[in-house]
Amino acid sequence: MKASIPTGTSGLLSSVAESAFAAGVGFLASGILLAVLGKDPIKAFYYLFEGSFGSANNFTITLAYAAPLILTALTFAVGVRAGLFNIGAEGTLYVGATAAVAAGLIHLPFGIGLLFVLIAAGAAGAAWSIPAYLLKSYRGVNEVISTIMMNNIALFAMQFVVLNYLLDPARSDKSASIPVDSRFPTLLPPNLTVAIFFSALVCFGVYYYLWQTPGGYELRAVGLNPEAAKFSGISPRRPMLYAFLLGGITAGLAGAVEVAGTFTPFAIYTGLSNLVNFGFNGIGVALIGRNHPMAIVLAGIFLGALQAGASSVQIAGISFEIVEVIEGMIVFAIAAPQLYRMFRRRLK
């Protein structure tokens, strides 16, 4: 017998087929929408592809979008694996980015500076995830509610921190920039940095934790059947804590990747405008990747491509809002089967 190990990939092939079909449906539906609006869908899709994969430079833009999305997707995916609906990646990413910028204020030599930024962002993200855990575990507060609240708190609290403590002395529209020695090294200027590989590495780490360690096993067991896990002697609190912490760390790191690994501004705009929606879009990435860390790498690149292509679609005379609608339709089509399965399980 082949000594295979559980990797959570069984049935992934049929998922790929399912996703491909769903993507087709999404493209078809948005093509129809474009035609109804009097735009040429073929041209639109051409520019979408051109802008994301059309040249080496465009592909690096895709990867730059993908890097933080992959990490925020992990937040959601780890939550789902533990039976949680953690949608706190958005706010946690703000907190991680802010911590990263703050850590960057201290000038450290090459390498150590980046390490310090990452540790600060991960730790801040982990800390930010604890209230939702405490509320859930000790007061029974649904994590959907608490993480939404935490997102709002993060939005305004981090704007406050940036404006009052981290502002660039020379400019009032952004925070101080992270010094070059504390950034992710650039591989292919300007857009390709080590960040995308770092994100993939974190994915592998999360995968390893979930499928190759006793703690990850417990997390999955609690997520699949909390009653059986409890009856077998697994206390549900510890796996839940780890799921929140791991989700916080990955979202915090996503913040660091966005400010220390994405070409310009290597800082936070005062309205957090270069941070918003990476957390929420990560949920879509997780759903497309069927909540499996390794599939999330591909799903992140897919959504990154849609975002990178969006600006060039505008060249085809299609307004940005329409492009967003199309993106949404495609993501929704692919995510729908997984969403359906998750809710069916929750409602059963």
Binding site: P6, Y217, R220, A221, L224, N225, E227, A228, F231
Partner: peptide, 12 residues
């Protein structure tokens, strides 16, 4: 409901 995690393998 209490004895098994149906979505896991026999080994798990």
């Amino acid at each position: 409901q209490m004895g098994l995690i149906l979505d896991m393998s026999v080994a798990e």
